[in-house]
Amino acid sequence: MIEAIKNKERWYKKAQQFVNSSLWILTRKEITDHIKSYRFNILMVIILLTCVASLYTAFSSIRDVASNLENNQSLFLYLRVFTITGENGTLPSFVTFISFLGPLLGISLGFDAINSERNKNTLLRIMSQPIPRDYIILSKFLGSLAVIAGFIFSLGFLVVGIGIISMGIPPTFGEIIRIVTYLVMIIIYVGFWLSLSILFSIRFKQAATSALAGIAIWLFFSIFYSIIVNLIVNASVPNQLFQAASTTSVQAESQQLLTSLMRFSPNYLFSEITTILLIPNFRTLGPISMEQLAGSVSAPLDLAQSFTIIWPQVIGILSAGIICFAISYFIFLFQEIRS
């Protein structure tokens, strides 16, 4: 009993220490700054609007989806809400919007993190306070990430809430787990872009340059990368003339090459994660042959299996983000104050 009280006191003390720590003070300032800033609010409105639009089409066509499905067991209605597109392809799905706008959110919250402070001379003043230098960059990252997390979770739960009201069916436990995991994945994915743009904000003195660099990489991966990979793979197929004669193994090989090259793109990794999490009927990533398919039961994957499949992708994105952050951390700590 006394032990428990002591434990409680210790936790209380620890919590208090954290609240008073300069890291938390700086992080809280960052969060306040973001929430008050026009930039974040404009982005929030853009994302909200596009998502509401895609949800509107989703909810208006979900009835058809439900009636088309034969197997009542594997409806996954709530997951379909995220992935469904408009009836005649007018509006992309929620998932498409998020994977397109998510990086933009990350870039826009991070691109001027350090260089604007440097240009406004506030960096030097904060640095001459008795705090470790890394708190400054850590608080930049944590503050932005907290804002992103808050926003993404509210958006996700908003969708579920609207779903409950409009459909009247509560989501199953499995669906909720998948949705929450998906939301966490979005945060990790946006976190990668955030740390990339913080890296640019340290490297480039001008905020505009760093924003452009971030957007350039985002465009490269979301548009040009797949084109380039296709070119490479097409060029590496031995002889186009004999394509008809080429065996399935050659085709499979080139398909394999395509997938492995595509997996260098964080966008592609994220799209794989999305697919597996939200469409449980997808049983595998990458090509499979007819022999492999033969005899398999066409049933949706259960949660644990889905997680197993996306695990490498998750680690990939996570480590890309951590590497970016580590580089920025390193540059920031050893950077001379004056150029």
């Binding site: 008073n20 300069s22 003070i25 700086l26 300032k29 700054d33 008050k36 402070e117 406004k120 001379n121 506030t122 960096l123 030097l124 003043r125 904060i126 001459s128 306070q129 008795p130 705090i131």
Partner: peptide, 25 residues
């Protein structure tokens, strides 16, 4: 006090000082 001291411009004077104070414990 640096030669070109910078404050967070969207905060009031006293808020800037309070932030410094809190960073000093």
């Amino acid at each position: 006090l640096p030669d070109n001291v910078g404050f967070y411009e969207d905060m009031t004077g006293i808020e800037n000082l309070i932030l410094t104070g809190k960073l000093n414990g």
